[in-house]
Each structure stands twice: as C-alpha cells, then as structure tokens.
C-alpha cells in the first residue's frame, strides 16, 4: 500500500468514490468500538445505579444478561458457520461449467426466499420441527444463505476471464485455478456477503426467544408483556450493541483477509 510510485495516479470521480469509501471504512473501523464502549458504559452505569423493582432486577441480573448474550452469540456463530459451509460450496458449484445455467434460477429462488419475513420462517419451522435451538438454527441458516451465495457467485463471475484462461494456459488444473486465482480474487466480494449474513443472523436471532431457543430477544419480549420499559430498552440496546460488534468483527475480517495486491 505504500509504494505506488509506478502506478499512474487514479483520477476523477472513480478515485474520489474510492477514497470516500476508504474513509467510510476507516471511520467505521475506528468509530464502532468507541460508540459501543460509550453506550455500553452508559448502560452499565445506569444498571449499577438504577432503582429496579423485583421483576426488573431479576430480568436484568448480571448472570441472566450474560446467559442470554452467550445464547445469542452461539446462535449467530453456529448459523453463520453453517451458512458458510453451505453457501460458498454451492456458489462455487453454480459457477462451474455445466451448472452455471442453474445459477440465475437458484439466485431467483433465494431472492424470493429473502422476501419472506424472518419471523414467519422461524414460526413455520417451529411448527414443523418443534421448539428447539436447532429449529432456530435451521431457520436462521436458511435466511443467511442468500447474501453469501449471491456474493460468491457474483465474486467468482467477476474474476477477469483472461486471468482464468492465463492460469489454465500456464498449465494449472481447474481446481488449482479455482483455489489460487478465482477464490482469492473473489474473497473481498464473498466477505462482504459474509458480513451481511452475520448482521442479518444476529438480528433475526432476537426471534429465537419466541420458540424458546434463547437469546437477548427475551428481554424485549418480557419487556413488552410485563410492561417494563427498562427491560425493553435494555434488550433493544444490548441487541443493537451486539449487532454493531458483530458488524465490526466482520469489517475487521474483511480487511484482514483481503489479498494484499488488490
């Protein structure tokens, strides 16, 4: 990144857009942790000093919060890992010769699926599979597949065809070209999809509480049913902070795995 002497300086609008995109990414990378720490600090201070009634104190007990957070994180991580394991290989397959015709169809179906409300999916799966951690995982995984699948396909299709041909022409096998040329070049796009999926999943994981699969959504639900604003707002706040942390981790990962030459 330091030595670009030999490269002609990019000019005009493209450069401006790129530099503004970089500025935004930097702002978010540096700003999100600050924002999260400040808000979380404020909430902790409030929690330590607030005068809570019995119900509030029980709902907002430290160990209860810790347990719900852990459940939320676990739901998010497990579902995202499954999303990766399914969507990336599927995306690769759909860009290989022979299957590429099916790609628009699969993406179309996945697009329609995306229009389905997440809460509806969760309820339908609960009716089918029962109230369970794994039911929630199945619903969330299905929900998170689309962005990764779509970005994997778009990222791989976006790799310059002459580079692929150059690789084959030099005597790399199809698998070698995939691993050493296509996937590394598609990584930035795929990772953007992974971050989108992470954020989606951490959001829909708040619905897990409706089917007894845990997570911070419980605070909102009890806040509503018991008319406790403090519990309600605490739930909203903690989920939002968790989502920001997950998004931030996604951004860090995105920056870290981006091939250096790009």
């Amino acid at each position: 990144m330091t030595d670009t002497a030999a490269q002609p300086a990019p000019t005009g609008r493209a450069a401006r857009l790129r530099s503004s995109a970089n500025r935004e990414q930097l702002l978010l990378l540096a700003g999100i942790p600050v924002l999260v720490l400040v808000v979380l600090g404020g909430w902790v201070a409030w929690r330590l000093t607030a005068d809570l009634d019995d119900i509030e104190a029980r709902q907002l007990a430290w160990d209860a919060i810790g347990r719900l957070t852990w459940q939320h994180v676990r739901l998010t991580v497990v579902a995202t890992v499954l999303v990766l394991l399914i969507a990336v290989p599927l995306g690769i397959m759909l860009t290989r010769r022979g299957f590429s015709r099916a790609a628009p169809l699969v993406v179309g179906v996945a697009n329609i699926g995306q229009a389905a409300p997440a809460i509806g999916l969760v309820v339908l799966f609960a009716i089918w599979l029962g109230f369970d951690f794994w039911t929630a995982i199945v619903a969330f995984t299905l929900y998170g597949i689309l962005p990764v699948l779509r970005n994997t396909i778009v990222g791989l299709q976006g790799v310059d065809a002459t580079l692929v041909e150059a690789g084959r022409g030099m005597g790399m096998s199809a698998a070698e070209v995939l691993w050493r040329i296509e996937l590394p070049l598609a990584v930035p796009v795929i990772m953007a999809g992974v971050r989108t999926a992470l954020v989606l999943v951490v959001g829909v994981a708040s619905f897990a509480t409706f089917i007894d699969a845990g997570g911070l959504g419980a605070l909102i639900q009890t806040g509503i049913t018991l008319f406790r604003t403090s519990v309600l707002v605490s739930g909203g706040l903690l989920i939002a902070l968790l989502a920001l942390v997950v998004d931030w981790l996604g951004r860090v990962l995105e920056t870290a795995v981006r091939p250096k030459g790009l």
């Binding site: 002459t162 040329i181 590394p184 070049l185 250096k260 790009l262």
Partner: peptide, 14 residues
C-alpha cells in the same frame, strides 16, 4: 512446458 504470454501480461493481481 509451453510458455504462454498474453496481452497486458495478465498478471495475477493478488
């Protein structure tokens, strides 16, 4: 075992 040189070099950017 056959050299292959393409327009622009087609170097792998990563």
């Amino acid at each position: 075992h056959i050299g292959y040189v393409i327009q622009g070099g087609s170097l792998f950017p990563h």
